[in-house]
Design a protein around this nucleic acid. Structure first.
Lengths: 226, 226
DNA sequence: GCAAAAGTGTTTGCCATACACCCATGT
DNA sequence: ACATGGGTGTATGGCAAACACTTTTGC
């Protein structure tokens, strides 16, 4: 047991990179820092890990406290532990990224923190190493979306192919051929067409699709060529 | 500053998944646990993060203390923070994986800890959640090797195509066509042939190759099809 | 009629895979 | 002579990308 004595203990926090999708843009939920220094600077939402919870649980709690959502797609990105990453005090931070449906979040709750959705390709200056946290998360999101329909977590339950394609275009910051994209996704065999059309975004109207029940969003095939 | 008060602090450790390559097998360096309970059970090498070091630095230190090596390929895998992952006490562990050249390690130092190299497909029972740490590391190694000649970190500076191929076969636990493998790797343009042959492993003798100086092991192309 | 998205089909070129084939040499 | 790995070349199938084309409907 001597191994465990006289070892330094650390404050451990979680920081959440919260992705949303709105107006054909990938967005991040950011908060103005509430205290000095750099008060008012924009920041990821975070919080300290508590005595009786894991980092995963802490991240879920933070997400619940700030968006009112539970059972959210959440995944660990990396842990940041540089000595001076937080000029206040030594804090080791475990970073998570989350995918949420913006319109399902509790708008009042979000506003009460002064939070704002920012397009990922037009972010404000972020405190500390938060910019790096965002970039790592973005990389992981892109990597995951190659072999998983993970992005669906950002759309409504039912969606058209155009909506799905625009989402992928936002994630990869490039365009996809509409015909080829449709064929590729359909070939995965995980979507089903509903007997319902969306007529607000095109003249002809486009069928809604949704994920088949009891199907995994991780697919064997590659959706995007790397 | 009130944010920082009354927050629980945690013991933070690093655990290192140390990969080596020997006798055409991918191996892991494991240590018999030195204290009760589960004394003698096999374990990854780890240590607590100290007050004035980052987790990265702690991992490098642990690696130096156990193998005598510095400047090693080392990469963060994930952080494990479940409440009861260590039955002794609450410890949050940041896991790293390392790639080393077995014959360059300090054999005396390794032996002095009672450490042993185990083939990855024939590991003993590991303590706590170390098995899961190994599996995550293995996944990341496979993923990285797709678009990087990362595996070279496990070979000598000069190597034949057969040696490189056998290494890849060990990493992916499958066979590669010798001719196609050679062409694929050569097409990356990052290896150079030396005027020197290895005659111990074949009758005809095979040229040694090495990584070109000032070249990145991350390549744009995909080496292994996923 | 025109524009714009929906949806389907066709063509092309690249690339992974399979495999044939000769070379060099130790036994 | 033969087995074995070294090394190069070739044929083939599958798939991504480019793009042509028809349909539908709001304007």
């Amino acid at each position: 047991m001597s191994f465990y004595l006289n070892q330094t203990k650390f404050l451990v926090s979680v920081d959440c990179v919260i992705f949303g999708y709105e107006e054909e843009q990938l967005k991040l939920l950011l908060y103005p820092r509430a205290f000095e220094p750099v008060k008012g600077s924009w920041s990821l939402m975070g919080g300290f890990v508590k005595e009786l919870e894991s980092a995963d649980e802490a991240a879920n709690r933070v997400l619940m406290e700030t968006t009112g959502l539970s059972n959210i797609f959440l995944e660990q990105v990396s842990t940041f532990s540089e000595l001076s990453r937080d000029p206040f005090e030594r804090v080791i931070s475990v970073v998570y990224f989350a995918l949420i449906r913006i319109n399902q979040s509790d708008e009042e709750l979000v506003k009460s923190h002064g939070a704002k959705w920012w397009p990922v390709n037009n972010l404000p200056k972020l405190i500390f190493d938060h910019r790096e946290m965002v970039e790592k998360s973005m990389n992981i999101l892109q990597q995951k979306a190659v072999s998983s329909l993970i992005g669906i977590e950002l759309l409504q339950e039912k969606f058209t192919f155009m909506q799905l394609r625009k989402l992928y275009e936002a994630i990869y910051q490039r365009e996809f051929d509409p015909g080829n994209f449709r064929k590729k996704i359909l070939s995965l065999g995980v979507l089903e067409r509903l007997n319902q059309k969306n007529s607000t975004e095109s003249k002809k109207g486009a069928y809604y699709y949704r994920l088949k029940p009891n199907v995994r969003i991780e697919v064997l095939d590659r959706i995007v060529k790397i």
